[in-house]
Simulated scan of single mutants.
Amino acid sequence: MLKVEVGVLALGSHQERHGAALPLDTDARIAEYIAREAVKRTGVNFLGVLQSSYELPCIKTGKHQSLGELAEELKDVIRDAKSEGIEGIVLVNAHGGNEKLEERLTEIENKLKVNLIFNSTICKIEGPHSGTGEVSIGAVLGFADKSRLKEHTSFERYPEVGFVGFEELRERYPWAEKHAREVLDRGIEVDESLGRGLLNEAIADVVNDTQRLSGQDDLR
């Protein structure tokens, strides 16, 4: 089987509100950590963190870019990576809005002759925005401010937490209503055991994608 030179690229968001207990670049930090840990375990190439991010309509949590800008930055990184002999890239995403980028991946693959895998596992398993899962991950990685956890659930001041204060968003997206109800019903706590478990699951999935991609023999 032909071996493929593989890279791992992190996608997050850099200027997105995450309540009182988490920083604006929470998603980027989580994505970078997962990507770097996968690289350590597989020996592939770390390609950095994209600076652009996309957000869905009605989600007004900070500064994001258009989907087109995100795609163009990704293409630039791919071109640079290909010049270094990389033919496959695992995209490690920790920001839900970026999942819209998946719709453009086939076009990008065909145009740039590269193999891409989009891994958004952490988004799927961590639960509500700025909720227990994300706060617990932040605690494990050392950037959550646990002293502000009570303030974190002041939803009038921090409506983005669980999207509790975004009524239009909750009406538009059933998943947002589900997340808001979870936060309202269960509250938010720091559980470092949970945080480590979520990170380990996400890292293992990225490692699997990396190994699968590096062993492909059906290159474009």
Rank of each mutant, 00 (worst) to 15 (best):
Met1Arg: 14
Leu2Gly: 05
Val4Tyr: 04
Val4His: 04
Glu5Val: 11
Gly7Phe: 07
Leu9Gly: 13
Ala10Lys: 08
Ala10Ile: 07
Ala10Ser: 15
Gln15Met: 13
Ala20Pro: 06
Ala21Trp: 05
Pro23Ser: 11
Leu24Asp: 01
Ala28Phe: 07
Ala31Gly: 14
Ala31Val: 11
Glu32Pro: 09
Glu32Phe: 01
Ile34Cys: 10
Ala35Gln: 10
Arg36Phe: 05
Arg36Met: 15
Arg36Ala: 06
Val39Pro: 14
Val39Leu: 10
Leu47Ser: 10
Leu47Cys: 06
Val49Met: 07
Val49Leu: 09
Leu50Arg: 04
Glu55Tyr: 06
Glu55Ala: 14
Leu56Gln: 02
Thr61Asn: 08
Thr61Trp: 01
Gly62Phe: 01
Gln65Tyr: 11
Gly68Cys: 07
Glu69His: 04
Glu72Pro: 07
Glu72Leu: 13
Glu72Ala: 13
Leu74Thr: 10
Arg79Asp: 12
Ala81Glu: 03
Lys82Ile: 04
Gly88Met: 03
Leu91Phe: 04
Leu91Val: 06
Val92Met: 08
Ala94Ser: 15
His95Thr: 03
Gly96Val: 11
Leu101Thr: 08
Glu103Trp: 05
Arg104Asn: 09
Glu107Thr: 14
Glu109Trp: 11
Glu109Asp: 12
Lys113Ala: 00
Val114Gln: 02
Phe118Gly: 10
Asn119Gly: 08
Asn119Thr: 09
Ile125Gln: 13
Ile125Gly: 05
Glu134Val: 13
Ser136Lys: 05
Ile137His: 12
Ile137Asp: 06
Gly138Thr: 01
Val140Leu: 09
Gly142Ile: 10
Ala144Ser: 11
Lys146Gly: 05
Ser147Arg: 08
Arg148Gln: 14
Arg148Pro: 12
His152Ser: 12
Thr153Lys: 07
Phe155Arg: 02
Glu156Ile: 04
Glu160Cys: 03
Gly162Lys: 02
Phe163Gly: 02
Val164Ala: 02
Gly165Tyr: 02
Glu168Trp: 09
Leu169Asp: 00
Arg170Ser: 03
Arg170Ile: 04
Glu171Ala: 10
Glu171Thr: 01
Ala176Gly: 06
Glu177Trp: 04
Lys178Pro: 00
Arg181Leu: 15
Arg181Thr: 15
Glu182Thr: 12
Val183Pro: 10
Val183Tyr: 09
Arg186Lys: 15
Gly187His: 08
Val190Glu: 05
Glu192Ile: 07
Leu194Ile: 11
Gly195Ile: 05
Arg196Glu: 13
Gly197Pro: 07
Glu201Pro: 01
Val206Ala: 00
Val207Gly: 04
Val207Asn: 11
Arg212Asn: 14
Arg212Ser: 12
Leu213Glu: 02
Leu213Val: 02
Leu219Thr: 09
